[in-house]
Design a protein around this nucleic acid. Structure first.
Lengths: 291, 291
DNA sequence: CATAATGTCTGACTTAAGTCAGGTAAATCT
DNA sequence: AGATTTACCTGACTTAAGTCAGACATTATG
């Protein structure tokens, strides 16, 4: 057998269907057929529009309807018509449905734990999984404005700081840098945008407003597993759009020559280098853009 | 949602069941139910013992029997009783079965190509897939003695040379090194052993005999995706065992301080450092072991 | 040699999954 | 307002998948 890319791909998918097929087993662990379990879990993960559910799971409308009826009879799901459109239906979990959903999550956690424990290089394995999840799902990427104090944003920022600490020879200490006030990155002064895949964050960017027509771009970060896919460019575009919405006329940012990818991105996307405009110890390159 | 290992695992398995579940679609692309297609492909990949097939695919014996009967009626499979045990049955593909199997392989190749093409960092993606395949399948690893001139061995050696070229500051040129004659690594003089996972090689080692009681260990290599799992140790154990079988009394090897993992492995597994015993330009550390 | 165990096969089931053709009510178009 | 489209539902099907009990031949065991 030739050892080409396809053979490697096949080996991967065989390995994965074998184990992750066992993830379907975790969907069967509660005495409910796979179809119903999938619907319940999709609703639990936040899908409520029945039409969305249908094409998320690739089900026929008849089948979908019956599965929902079944879950309703079990007392796990409640459906009601969409307030703006009487034809559409929405589905949410009842109290008991939530409990059941959590039980599924625990089953799959247990499975994840077993698989992860079997392999000594846990972080490497997770990094590889992230990379593949991103590679396979990247057209489902979505950008969202969130509260910079929320969990998602804090996760991104944590990763961002950790990365800076690694990249800078002198290390990185948030306290020494000018940590932007969260309120400056919330409307109406500013904005904070994250890139999400399946609900997990892959990148972020902040627009730190001053109340006037001038604002700063801060905290541009993309997860290692998601680099080279143009996500930082998408984030920057979204940030500029948000800035325009907030009637900001001039954007500035500081960055470092220790982050050459970032510097190159700004050069390529219409930013002009300017003089140092703060005395933060970390940055050594400064940019400006007129909107 | 907390961004912990389990969430990352779940995102991965969702991404993968979505796409690789579509790999089952490639199993459906020839108008045959999934079960039958899986059996056909398992036989095509070399499984012939019906009992093995059964627990490979996790099927009930009744179901298995019926699926085989179906494939036989289609003229794709031939079954016969095991020569050593009249209760057991063996199954092989007919000519037409082979053709059908190849058609399935082409379908899955096409799918692999599409998925790989969608992502810009092909090699990184493949490396991540290898890592995961190895992590999930490592208890299925098997060691096998093969001809060092065969395809599997040549692949390993190619990778080995490429890696040396990268590791050594001076590069690596096989011609300048003492490339062992293949016949010295075939019984009765020596042996060449590969580690396989799902038929794909993950590592190799050669025992280069001289005809007498002295032999040399050559070409110990483990694929990057499979490192840190003790495979080189397994390979060395197998090599020593093979050497004993060949009534070899003393094993020697040369290696380089540019390969610290290797040096450490030998130190830990009962080898003693000795004086330089050849004038090869690359090695600078030499070991010996009495069997 | 009798008995137990093993590996496969067959027939009679059950359940899940999926398809298709209407049918109803709400929304949208002209 | 009437026709058309959309979103969902229902009933009547088909097919795939899986289970269980028992039959049968072969091999292993005491």
């Amino acid at each position: 057998m030739p050892i080409d890319a396809n053979a490697r791909f096949r080996r991967f998918s065989r390995a994965v269907t074998r184990e992750v097929g066992a993830l379907d087993t975790s969907f069967l662990g509660r005495g409910r057929p796979l179809g119903a379990a999938r619907v319940l879990n999709a609703i639990g993960r936040g899908r409520s529009d029945v039409a969305h559910l249908r094409d998320d799971l690739g089900l026929d409308s008849g089948l979908m309807s019956r599965l929902l009826r079944g879950l309703e009879e079990e007392g796990l799901v409640r459906t009601y018509t969409h307030p703006d459109d009487g034809r559409r239906r929405l589905a949410t979990l009842t109290e008991e449905g939530e409990r059941e959903f959590r039980a599924y999550e625990e089953l799959s956690d247990a499975q994840a734990t077993t698989i992860l424990a079997r392999y000594p290089h846990r972080e490497a394995l997770l990094a590889a999984m992230d990379l593949i999840a991103v590679a396979l799902g990247r057209d489902r990427l979505s950008l969202q404005e969130v509260d910079p104090r929320g969990e998602t944003a804090r996760h991104c920022l944590g990763q961002y700081y950790a990365e800076l600490a690694q990249r800078f020879e002198m290390g990185f200490d948030v306290a020494r840098s000018r940590d932007p006030d969260a309120r400056d990155m919330i409307r109406p002064r500013g904005a904070f945008i994250v890139a999400l895949l399946d609900g997990l964050p892959l990148g972020c960017v902040g627009v730190k407003g001053t109340g006037g027509g001038l604002a700063e771009i801060k905290r541009l970060w993309v997860a290692p597993s998601a680099r080279g896919l143009g996500i930082s460019r998408q984030l920057m575009t979204a940030a500029e759009k948000a800035a325009r919405d907030l009637s900001i006329r001039v954007l500035r940012l500081d960055t470092s020559s220790a982050l050459p990818e970032a510097v190159q991105l700004y050069r390529k996307t219409g930013w002009t280098e300017i003089e140092r405009f703060n005395d933060d110890p970390y940055p050594d390159v400064f940019f400006e853009k007129q909107l």
